[in-house]
Design a protein around this nucleic acid. Structure first.
Lengths: 141, 141
DNA sequence: TAATAAATGCGTTTAATTTTCATTATCTTC
DNA sequence: GAAGATAATGAAAATTAAACGCATTTATTA
């Protein structure tokens, strides 16, 4: 009961919709999902669920630190499991495929820039947008 | 007639709403403005304008390369004049104050990361979020 | 200045997300 | 393990940012 315990720790009640949402994130091939994605996935596997519940659960999971919310250029919010280990994103503008990366050099330079401006850095978001033409750009939007 | 010529160059007709929008960006203390901000500003100075026009004009200006559109965490689109010279942003989470910066090291490393992933980089967005406590954090949200 | 082509404002519409509220399920305690 | 308290759910309505349709107005260009 892995997911059951994860939920318990957050103080949220352990309900079917919440278990299912967590489960989808943990078993999905695509790590970055919108509320709509999850809703369709659940309807597809015969769950009785309302879209409002998905939105609520996603926000609660974000507040509980289970998920991270991203704002890509699309306008819709995208969520992924909070792996605790920080990483940034590189997004293909053609097919929407997302890859993750971490670059220590960039991290260090950011802290340096923040210092230069008298800021204490709390977080950051870095998205590289490009063209993954060298790869199998066969993902559908 | 500075702004007049700027508009001409884009091929767009030189109209009052468009001149006024440009003017607001060029004279505003705050460089980063939402459609709503501009709308209120114009109503405030007695202009007869519709919000739809603002949205249209902002999008046209973006396409013409006069403005850059940002997606901050707020969910609303934020625009700024396109100074042509690329820069990133550091945002204070307390007061919303935004500063700009460019760091060549970060730029280079991004290109490198893109290459490693087989991407051709088209653009990127980097926002550092923090606390500007050492400065006069007296801006109101 | 007249003709034409584009821009405007208003109201309506869409898309994503949030809220309300009555019903239902979970948790806690006995 | 059932009862009561409390929180979660689903459906529908509300909200918010942004876009659109169209009749009217305005800028351009000849």
């Amino acid at each position: 009961m892995e997911e059951h315990d994860e939920l318990k720790k957050t103080g949220l009640k352990v309900t079917l919709p919440r278990l299912k949402v967590l489960n989808i994130f943990e078993s999905s091939k695509e790590k970055h999902l919108t509320a709509e994605d999850i809703y369709k996935e659940m309807l597809g596997s015969g769950e009785e669920v309302g879209l409002a519940t998905i939105y609520r659960v996603l926000t609660q999971f974000e507040q509980a630190g289970l998920l991270i919310r991203h704002h890509f250029e699309s306008g819709k919010a995208v969520f992924e499991l909070n792996e605790k280990s920080h990483h940034d994103h590189i997004v293909c503008l053609q097919c929407g495929h997302v890859e993750e990366f971490v670059n220590e050099g960039i991290e260090k330079l950011q802290t340096q820039v923040a210092n230069e401006h008298g800021f204490t850095i709390i977080e950051h978001s870095l998205y590289i947008y490009g063209d993954c033409t060298k790869k199998d750009c066969e993902y559908k939007k």
